[in-house]
Simulated assay, not measured.
Amino acid sequence: MGEKWLAACDIGGTSIKMAFLTADGDIIRKWSIPTDRTDSGAHIVSHISRSFYNELDSEGLTTANVSAVGVGAPGPADPVTGTISGAVNIGWANGYPLKKLLEEELELPVFVENDANCAALGEMWRGAGNGTGDVVCVTLGTGVGGGVVSKGMIITGVNGAAGEIGHITVMPENGLLCNCGKRGCLETVASATGIVNLYKMEGKDAPDARTVFERAAEGDEAGKRVIDRCAFYLGLAIGNIANVMNPAKVVVGGGVSEAGDAILIPLERYVRQFTFPRAMDVLSIEKAKLGNDAGVIGAAYLAKVMTV
């Protein structure tokens, strides 16, 4: 084997996606293992290590054939120490030393970043960002995640809390309570859960966001208002981010983005309304392209640029 591979993993609440990639970001091999949340997530690192070694062995390779490991993890990640804060869904205590533990297991350089930030890096490198170095990624799932990439690098802030797009306040008065403890966060009105919340505020019930979109398409006026309101709040947040960061692309992913033009067309209208004209001149809004591979591709990119 000539060129060394990049190794990557994307740690989620139910599964851990893992991959080997080339230095250009092509996936050579990918697989996943269950996330063992028993004992406060104490076994996750050893399971990752064992799985990487097993896959390398099946290829007749060793860690000498790998240059570095990139990891996307839930919760804020300290950009220097690689510790994780607030990953309550997998049981890790505040300040969990993920980088240190994985480096001891794998005997390779390990670089850790928040999972949403890794997805943003992946979309920037090989996805809808199309290689441009200035991208804002918004993921609309059960919550609202995001990442801001400038000049090819993720904006982390002082302690890894930058890019928390879901917690931009968009309802400063009478806002809904968010899981973070604040009120009026974007996540409470623009996630899949948030769309159902807005529908309830219209006096109607739906089991999920998909149902709201389906009813709106069938002519339900409350559903139409909810989608417009969701697009308004998203556009307000994205417009203000664009005014600060001046990105080339805003990439929208997650389950809600599967509604396609039903959300993207009104979203673009509101982004245009709230964005400084010069910033809007160079901005396009794109649907994410990489799906579940975004996290491992972005983690590999992180490993690549941090070892150059």
Rank of each mutant, 00 (worst) to 15 (best):
G13R: 08
G127I: 07
T156F: 12
G131S: 06
F232V: 01
Y53F: 07
D10P: 12
H47P: 07
G163C: 05
N240F: 06
V158E: 13
E221K: 09
N292S: 04
T81P: 10
E214T: 08
A68S: 11
N246Q: 05
G291Y: 13
S46M: 05
T211F: 01
G203R: 03
A288E: 11
E202M: 04
V250W: 12
V149E: 14
V196L: 06
G184V: 06
G203M: 04
S58N: 14
A42H: 11
V212M: 00
D36T: 10
A206S: 08
A8W: 08
G75E: 14
E59S: 07
D293I: 05
N117P: 11
A23F: 12
K182P: 09
M171K: 13
T22L: 00
A64W: 14
A190R: 06
N89L: 02
E55Y: 10
A93W: 14
I265L: 05
A120N: 12
S284P: 10
A300W: 11
R37A: 05
R37W: 13
G13W: 14
E113D: 15
T38K: 02
R210C: 01
A231V: 08
A8R: 03
A217T: 10
S32D: 15
V69Y: 11
Y301Q: 04
I44R: 08
W31M: 02
M306Y: 15
H47T: 07
N65A: 06
G239I: 01
T14V: 00
A209F: 10
G25Q: 05
P34S: 01
G147A: 00
G166L: 00
M1K: 09
W92M: 00
V136N: 08
P74G: 02
S40N: 15
S49A: 10
